[in-house]
């Protein structure tokens, strides 16, 4: 590349090398994220194996309709994010901004529904701690279940909030025409992150919401 692109950082030879590095960096980051959530999934697996009945009973106190709606919302947001990446690759600025805005909107819908669910658990004394109350024989396992429920969905929600923030920054920059056919790496790697957070939810939903269903 004879003259440096304005987005080219000084440690790189050219935009291609920079794109490769950013993309690999995001993949490596996602691997650490898998291990991060993996620890929680491990704790969940062991705790559920120890108390299968208590976990199933506690799970019935989660709202499958709201959880299912949120699953659908997130799958749609993955689609809009994928379309945003496509728009950046073909260099269509308005389309890119539109799909990014839609992704943010869906992300916010997810978070609002999640907040409604949390509030509901609070009202029904299902938040672990001194106020926790649950029908006697399975009270301990149920508290364990809800500890993990809040830890796992809370960590996931934190990732959603970060994701919405990242996409919001992308939106502003996209609107200003920062991303072109030659340079749209941030959109691509943020897309990877967004899909990853969605996939985590795809695992969380059945493990938390569906294990209590009658067979």
């Amino acid at each position: 590349m004879s003259q440096a692109h304005s987005a080219l950082a000084e440690q790189f030879r050219d935009l291609e090398q920079q794109r490769e590095a950013s993309s690999l960096g995001m993949w490596v980051f996602l691997v650490t994220e898998i291990m991060f959530f993996g620890g929680l999934f491990m704790v969940y697996t062991v705790a559920r194996a120890m108390h299968p009945a208590g976990f199933a009973q506690a799970s019935r106190h989660l709202d499958v309709t709201l959880g299912g709606t949120n699953t659908a919302v997130l799958i749609c947001s993955s689609l809009t994010m994928a379309l945003a990446v496509y728009a950046s690759q073909v260099g269509r600025r308005r389309m890119l901004a539109g799909f990014l805005a839609l992704t943010i909107a869906l992300g916010c819908v997810f978070l609002v529904i999640k907040a409604i669910e949390y509030a509901d658990k609070f009202h029904h004394h299902l938040v672990p701690g001194s106020a926790f109350s649950f029908a006697a024989p399975e009270a301990r396992p149920a508290e364990l279940f809800f500890s993990l429920y809040f830890a796992m969905t809370g960590l996931h929600a934190l990732h959603m909030i970060i994701g919405v923030g990242v996409v919001a920054v992308l939106l502003v920059k996209a609107w200003r025409g920062r991303y072109t056919i030659e340079y749209h790496t941030p959109v691509e790697i943020s897309g990877l992150y967004w899909h990853f957070v969605d996939i985590i939810w795809i695992f969380l939903f059945p493990l938390l919401y569906l294990i209590g269903l009658k067979r």
């Binding site: 691997v31 959530f37 620890g39 993990l148």
Partner: peptide, 25 residues
């Protein structure tokens, strides 16, 4: 570093949460 550290991070975070909120994980 990238495969092991996240696991100890989440584990120690659970210890802190368990201690603060008196959970029983």
């Amino acid at each position: 570093m990238i495969l092991g550290t996240p696991v100890v991070a989440i584990t120690l975070a659970l210890v802190a949460v368990e201690r603060v909120f008196h959970l029983g994980i």
